[in-house]
């Protein structure tokens, strides 16, 4: 099973994400944003955190129009898996693969700390490993993580069981405490918290490892 991690100028969690995928048993290839094809046989594409293109214009806006993103969209349209974390989540909303947008944090401050999350949407490969209603802790590090969508979109997300993670104590003003959502086919996940930064003993928290471990076993049986 193979993962590809996209690298934009300004990505800074790309190697962390690659390591988390590799630790879970996936073969990993890094893919430069100017590339026009994903490596053959890729099962999951990781869109990492960071400050792609310096967050110029809007977070993720320029990255979403990078050549490789057309391929990421095509991969998702074929039913492929995509995991976007932090800036990666922003990129996925900008590409339209996930609905809504990430606004400036309601408190205007960049927030870097570990927060509590409750898992939902237990039928996605990303959350199955936790089960629904499990409380976990993951780090966040963002300035623009305030999830916004109109009420109709939010109702649809809830109705379709597409809220993957909710904050237990909303740090950034996100609508309905949403920290992560999945696509209609539940194969594309975007989330602001960083599971890859809490995935080995040295991190002092391994709550994120379960996401990668379960994802890998689900891909193996798919």
């Amino acid at each position: 099973m193979k993962a590809a991690v996209i690298v934009f100028p300004g990505s800074n969690c790309d190697r962390d994400m690659a390591r988390a995928f590799a630790q879970a048993g996936l073969e990993v290839e890094m893919v430069w944003h100017k590339d026009t094809a994903l490596p053959a046989g890729v099962d999951i594409v990781g869109v990492p955190g960071g400050f792609s293109f310096g967050d110029y214009l809007r977070c993720g806006a320029i990255a979403a129009n990078a050549p490789i993103c057309a391929e990421v969209k095509a991969h998702a349209d074929r039913g492929g898996y995509v995991l976007g974390v932090c800036n990666g989540f922003q990129v996925l909303t900008e590409t339209g693969l996930l609905p809504g947008a990430l606004l400036r944090n309601a408190g205007l401050k960049y927030i870097c700390r570990t927060i509590g999350l409750r898992t939902e949407a237990a039928d996605s490969v990303y959350t199955q490993g936790y089960g629904a209603g499990t409380e976990i802790a993951l780090p966040i590090a963002h300035h623009d993580g305030n999830y916004f969508a109109d009420d109709a979109t939010l109702d649809a997300l809830e109705g379709e069981g597409r809220v993957a993670f909710r904050y237990t104590d909303n740090p950034n003003g996100s609508a309905r405490d949403i920290a992560g959502i999945v696509s209609a086919n539940k194969r594309v996940l975007g989330m602001m918290p960083h599971p890859e930064r809490a995935s080995e003993a040295a991190h002092g928290n391994e709550d994120g490892a379960r996401l990668f471990a379960h994802l890998t076993s689900a891909l193996a049986t798919a």
Partner: peptide
Amino acid sequence: EKLLANTVI
């Protein structure tokens, strides 16, 4: 529509 504005917000 494609870049300068995000018409969601």
